[in-house]
Design a protein around this nucleic acid. Structure first.
Lengths: 199, 199
DNA sequence: GTCTATAGTTTGATAGAC
DNA sequence: GTCTATCAAACTATAGAC
């Protein structure tokens, strides 16, 4: 029968990756045991090793999943005609996820923060996952008529989100991210005109 | 001879706390073994348990150390006459630490991010460490003539720093935090006048 | 390809001599 | 108060039957 194989593996492999993404987000990489992922995916522990030789390979697969979801989301936003609307829609997505952020933080950000502590090759992988978003933001600010400081504004916007996610998580208060998100949306509106960047 | 006892213990205990703060920052809590802290403090492993019954007690002590250092720093900033100068001096301190942030992130922020993943009591302790800073920021914005949105501006400023630290760490690039810090300093300057918040 | 059982390590914590 | 030796639990990873 027609199974749902991807280019890299089976449906069971996909279940394992999805379970890894979810469990790493909720518990962190270090506190997550392979048995947790196996259980979440409904797969016996020993069988995990048929698809992933090491725990690190599951971390890499989780990063790849994040990168794919991000690329798909940005492609959807590109359908909007105005760059300011694209940026504000992105921020709206963050606001809509504020409850998740309050409980577990930003999925990509908390993963990056944890991987940054490592000294093996995986500490640079987080940067590769986040760079496309930063590049996309920069291109939007450029289209918005801010070619000179587009990169700085991209860093400022992504920083504001990552920091607000951290505070929202630490204080378990979704309102922090919601308020900051609305502030960022009106800040984006002011940027179309050549006024100093602000919020 | 006169030893340097604190209210809670001996000089050796202080060395252990200092080593814990440093090692947790550089390696993260989960990846740090008690043997790492013992070695960094020059104390045999078994002796650690005379001062701290569990690893979690060392985490609590590290949080307390962060809280104390923060309180001392804010008290020093209070000597400055103008609230805008206090805020900009705080940001300057962040800029001056950008090299450390590039390598290990914000000491308090990365610790909070990691503790947020826990479900025991320690996940709320990070909030207690960060709240005094948020309260201090709020009082500064209030003194700056922004009583209505002082709390939101405090969240915005601390978020910007925490997020910039995360990006700086992820991309191993101190320039990100430096540029964002300067942007925040000029943003603070614009806030004294009743213009919309921005940077 | 799938799964059970278990080997091999690591590590938090303790016992007990000094 | 200090330190060595070691236990017990947890966890990654593998062997090998099916």
């Amino acid at each position: 029968m027609a199974d749902s194989r991807t280019s890299r593996g089976s449906a069971k492999r996909d279940r394992l990756v999805a379970a890894a993404v979810r469990t790493f987000h909720e518990q962190g990489v270090e506190k997550t045991r392979l048995a947790d992922i196996a259980e979440a995916a409904g797969v016996p522990l020993g069988n995990v090793y048929y698809y992933f030789k090491t725990k690190d390979q599951l971390v890499e697969a989780a990063l790849g999943s994040h990168a794919g979801a991000l690329a798909a989301h940005l492609a959807a936003l590109d359908a909007l005609p105005a760059p300011a609307d694209r940026l504000k829609a992105l921020v709206q997505g963050w606001i809509d996820q504020s409850d998740v952020a309050a409980r577990f933080g930003c999925p990509t950000g908390t993963l990056a923060s944890e991987l940054d502590k490592r000294t093996d090759g995986l500490d640079r992988a987080a940067a590769d996952t986040m760079r496309p978003l930063l590049d996309w933001l920069e291109s939007q600010f450029r289209a918005l008529g801010r070619p000179d400081d587009a990169r700085d504004l991209a860093v400022a916007l992504l920083s504001a989100y990552q920091g607000a996610s951290l505070l929202t998580n630490t204080f378990r208060d979704p309102a922090l991210l919601e308020t900051e998100g609305r502030r960022l949306q009106s800040w984006i509106d002011t940027l179309a005109r050549p006024t100093p960047p602000g919020a």
